[in-house]
Simulated scan of single mutants.
Amino acid sequence: MRIDLNADLGEGFGPWRMGEDEALLGVLSSANVACGFHAGDPLIMEHTVKAALARGVDIGAHVGFPDLQGFGRRRMDLPAEELAAIVTYQLAALAGIARTSGHRMTHMSFHGAMGNLAAAEATVADPLVEAVARFDPDLTIVTSSSRAIEGAAARCGLRTAIAFLADRAYHADGLLVPRRLAGAVIHDEDAVLDRVRRLVGEGVVITHEGERLAMKADSILVHGDTAGALDLARAIRTTIEAAGGKVVPVSRLGR
Results as ranks from 00 to 15, higher is better:
Ala80His: 05
Asn32Phe: 12
Ala229Glu: 04
Arg134Ser: 08
His223Leu: 09
Phe71Arg: 00
Glu150Arg: 15
Gly115Ser: 06
Glu82His: 06
Gly70Asp: 11
Pro137Ser: 13
His47Trp: 12
Thr123Gln: 13
Gly112Thr: 09
Phe13Asp: 06
Arg179Trp: 05
Phe13His: 09
Leu175Arg: 06
Thr123Arg: 14
Ala122Tyr: 10
Val129Pro: 09
Leu43Ser: 06
Pro137Asp: 12
Glu211Gln: 14
Ile240Met: 02
Pro178Cys: 11
Gly228Thr: 09
Ser219Lys: 04
Val142Gln: 08
Asp173Arg: 01
Leu181Phe: 15
Gly183Glu: 10
Arg155Thr: 13
Asp173Trp: 06
Pro42Trp: 11
Ile141Phe: 07
Val87Leu: 07
Glu130Thr: 15
Arg197Leu: 15
Met18Ser: 00
Ala7Glu: 00
Ala217Phe: 01
Met105Arg: 10
Val63Tyr: 01
Asp126Ile: 12
Phe164Arg: 05
Glu121Leu: 07
Arg104Cys: 02
Gly64Pro: 12
Ala131Gly: 00
Leu176Gln: 02
Glu81Met: 08
His171Asn: 10
Gly245Asn: 09
Ile44Tyr: 04
Asp58Ser: 13
Asp231His: 14
Ala61His: 12
Cys156Asp: 12
Glu20Asn: 05
His38Met: 04
Met114Gly: 00
Glu241Val: 11
Arg234His: 08
Ala23Tyr: 03
Ala235Ser: 15
Arg237Val: 08
Glu121His: 14
Ala125Glu: 05
Ala125His: 05
Pro15Arg: 09
Arg73Val: 04
Ala217Asn: 10
Pro79Phe: 03
Glu46Asp: 11
Gly10Tyr: 07
Thr48Phe: 10
